[in-house]
């Protein structure tokens, strides 16, 4: 089957229902099943208990799910664990494995969610649990297009590439938006987390204008704090998707250059929300107001 995501044509032996299907023409990326060495990369560097890297190659094991070998920015080999379901493989394939592939293609990969605002886009970044996906779902409920969920690749020109039309949403967040999850596909059979299809597929890459770093504190109101000049650099580095992959794949200097370029083009702010008594909708309102004041 052939699919499209991140402006790439992907040929995959594993069905990828989250992605848009296309007709097979020229293939940019091949995803196939094969054996992947059990003990990492012979000529590589071990970066974690289940992680190895070498130039243009990343080896990742998700125990009891699959081993992934990602190489040259154009190939992902999957070696599934016995009896594992396709959904479980997909969630890690479309996360870490794809993140590594996009790095290998020379992109800056941001850990966040991108939302279209006119002819530009904003990205919300922050640690796991900061509410990135919930906020993206709130934007979607208000009629905005979601460009990418969790993994946002950015090219040399500071454009965010469109991912694929889904948001991973937890049960509690779905209920907040009165989204009935009965008919939604669980990201993995045993988890209360769902693939929420997003309306409208964005085709073109969009310039990134705003990046918001999400955080929370014991405060009563949502606050914004602009980050200027050289200070923009570190937050971009810190919110890079799986920055550790870069070291082993020797992509660090390229990454620094990309961060520098992006920093000069964006308005970067820290968005702090109250720990209690806020809604994702109120955050959307606050962001839209901030965007209006700071176009």
């Amino acid at each position: 089957m052939y699919y499209s995501a991140y402006q790439l044509t992907i040929a995959s032996e594993l069905p990828l229902p989250e992605l848009v299907q296309v007709n097979g023409t020229q293939t940019d990326v091949t995803i196939r099943f094969d054996n992947v060495a059990e003990n990492g990369l012979a000529d590589g560097e071990q970066l974690g208990p289940f992680l190895w890297a070498a130039p243009n190659t990343l080896w990742l094991q998700v125990p009891n799910v699959a081993r992934f070998l990602v190489r040259n920015g154009n190939e992902i080999i999957i070696d599934p664990a016995d009896g594992i379901d396709d959904d479980s493989i997909r969630v890690f394939l479309l996360g870490s494995a794809f993140g590594a592939l996009l790095f290998q293609r020379g992109l800056l990969v941001i850990h966040g969610n991108a939302v279209r605002i006119g002819d530009e886009c904003l990205i919300c970044v922050g640690p796991s649990g900061a509410g990135k996906s919930t906020l993206a779902a709130a934007f979607m409920q208000r009629g905005f297009d979601v460009l990418a969920d969790d993994v946002v690749p950015v090219n040399d020109a500071g454009l965010a590439l469109p991912g694929f039309p889904r948001i991973k949403l937890w049960q509690d967040a779905a209920e907040q938006f009165e989204i009935v999850t009965d008919d939604l596909r669980r990201i993995r059979p045993e988890m209360n987390k769902f693939n929420l299809p997003v309306n409208g597929v964005v085709q073109q890459a969009l310039p990134i204008r705003w990046i918001y770093i999400l955080g929370s504190d014991h405060i009563d109101e949502i606050t914004f704090e602009a980050i200027n000049g050289m200070a923009k650099f570190m937050p971009l580095q810190n919110n890079t998707y799986r920055a550790k992959f870069l070291h082993g794949m020797q992509l660090k200097s390229q990454h620094l250059a990309l961060c520098g370029k992006l920093a000069s083009k964006i308005r970067l702010s820290r968005l702090t929300r109250p720990k209690l008594g806020f809604t994702a909708n109120a955050m959307v309102d606050a962001i839209l107001k901030d965007i209006e004041v700071n176009p």
Partner: peptide
């Protein structure tokens, strides 16, 4: 950070 994949997708 150590694992290289999201515990948010694990039970």
């Amino acid at each position: 950070e150590t694992l290289g994949f999201d515990t948010a997708d694990l039970t």
